[in-house]
Design a protein around this nucleic acid. Structure first.
Length: 405
DNA sequence: TCTGGGGTCCTATTCCTA
DNA sequence: TCTGTAGGAATAGGACCC
């Protein structure tokens, strides 16, 4: 059965910035940069007007404001973006139940089963793009192909572009027709492939590989020798447009973490300990909201010189209580020396299981504040209503502070 | 010009147990 | 009991993605 190109990749254009413009139309046509403002902040998203000046996401905010001094800087409002993301998702579901969300602003759709009802893959791609624009008011680009990674590359090809000379509108929908995959793929730079970052690119460059075509012409054994078994095979397959990955609608969450970069380095165990409790509290309440609990607690420490270490411990039972997570985190932190300065601290929980956590450790501690009670109080009186006592009276100077309510 | 935050996956090593 | 080994789980780090 040949369904033609029927895997879609939908990617919102400059998503966070576009939402901000939609919520405040006076921003339309302006250079809008969404991201952390402080000395250690970075750009999370920016409008095409800002991209004309060379600004792009992940760029340090300081550099962005030097490149584009007149830009409007905004703190991210993830709750808003999440709501729009949800509405966009509902549009997708009108066309197929096979929707795999990748992030707030992009998703894969398998529409092979919807062709009789709605028309070909490209037809559905156009319909979805139009629906998002007309019903929600946001711009999106759509790639249509026979495999996920080609659809992803196609949506990239459909996007607008911006440089000093101005903004060039994109095609909106780009289709890689069956039979034309290699002609589309092989001229592209290898860097465009999913999974080729700075480190892998450097290794490939030593082999003289610059385009996907070069990669395809490189013997598999050579690739495996340089990149390892998994990545070598994977990239070789992709270079020949072979990608067996299916669109998976319900991918389970594997870990939940919370980390923060501080505007000023932390130098004492006491400071780390207080922060670990706060981060653990955030992770714990998210776990409970998702009805998850996990056995492995990981702390992440980034020192002033950017050297980063992790330390983890696996508990006998899954937990989702802030005090238990924090206690474990603090035990892990005992072995590290914050003297030289810690710029980032993170707490994560993995090895997740669904359902209620064991309350054993809590009861053993004789604690009276269970997570469920904390959640109920917060549900009624707000998130600041209750929390660990040692966090009271404490306002940290963070790089990306939460926006005011 | 210094590098966010939230994730996933892969690899190497170590440790424990059969 | 000693030794070797095979395999799984835990641990740490790194690369990559948006």
């Amino acid at each position: 059965m040949d369904d033609g190109a029927a895997i879609l990749h939908v990617d919102m254009d400059a998503f966070y910035a576009s939402v901000e413009v939609l919520l405040d139309p006076s921003l339309k046509g302006k250079a809008v940069i969404v991201g952390g403002r402080g000395a250690r902040g970075v750009v999370a998203a920016c409008s095409y007007e800002a991209r004309m000046y060379g600004v792009h996401s992940a760029m340090p905010s300081g550099r962005a404001s030097r490149l584009c001094p007149h830009a409007v800087f905004l703190a991210p409002r993830f709750d808003q973006y999440g709501e729009f993301s949800h509405r966009i998702h509902e549009v997708f579901l009108r066309y197929t139940p096979l929707v795999e969300g990748i992030s707030l602003d992009e998703a894969f759709l398998d529409v092979r089963g919807s062709i009789r009802l709605f028309g070909s893959g490209p037809t559905i791609g156009h319909a979805i793009r139009t629906a998002i624009a007309e019903e929600i008011g946001l711009p999106a680009s759509v790639g249509v192909a026979t495999t996920k990674f080609l659809a992803k590359l196609a949506s990239e090809a459909a996007k607008p572009s911006a440089d000093r000379r101005g903004i060039k509108p994109g095609a909106g929908v780009f289709v890689v027709e069956p039979g034309t995959e290699l002609a589309f793929l092989h001229p592209l730079p290898v860097r465009a492939l999913w999974g080729v970052g700075p480190a892998t690119y450097k290794k490939l460059a030593t082999l003289g590989v610059d385009t996907v075509g070069d990669l395809a012409a490189t013997p598999l054994a050579t690739l495996v020798g340089v990149l390892g078994d998994a990545i070598g095979h994977h990239l070789h397959e992709l270079s020949w447009a072979r990608d067996p990955r299916r669109v998976e609608p319900d991918r389970p969450v594997k870990s939940v973490s919370h980390e923060e970069t501080y505007a000023v380095d932390l130098h004492t165990i006491a400071a780390l300990s207080t922060e670990a409790l706060r981060l653990s509290d955030g992770v714990a309440s998210r776990l409970r909201k998702a009805e998850l609990a996990g056995r492995t607690i990981t702390v992440k420490v980034r020192f002033h010189d950017f050297n980063t270490i992790t330390r983890s411990r696996t508990l006998p039972e899954p937990v989702n209580d802030a005090l238990v997570i924090a206690r474990t985190a603090n035990e892990l932190l005992e072995s590290i020396d914050p003297g030289p300065g810690v710029r980032l601290l993170g707490v994560g929980v993995s090895n997740l299981a669904h359902g209620a956590a064991s309350q054993l450790s809590l009861l053993e501690e004789g604690s009276t504040s269970t997570g469920a009670v904390v959640d109920r109080i917060r549900g009624r009186f707000g998130s600041a209503a209750v929390g660990p006592a040692s966090l009271l009276e404490r306002r940290n100077s963070r790089v990306n502070p939460a926006p005011p309510r």
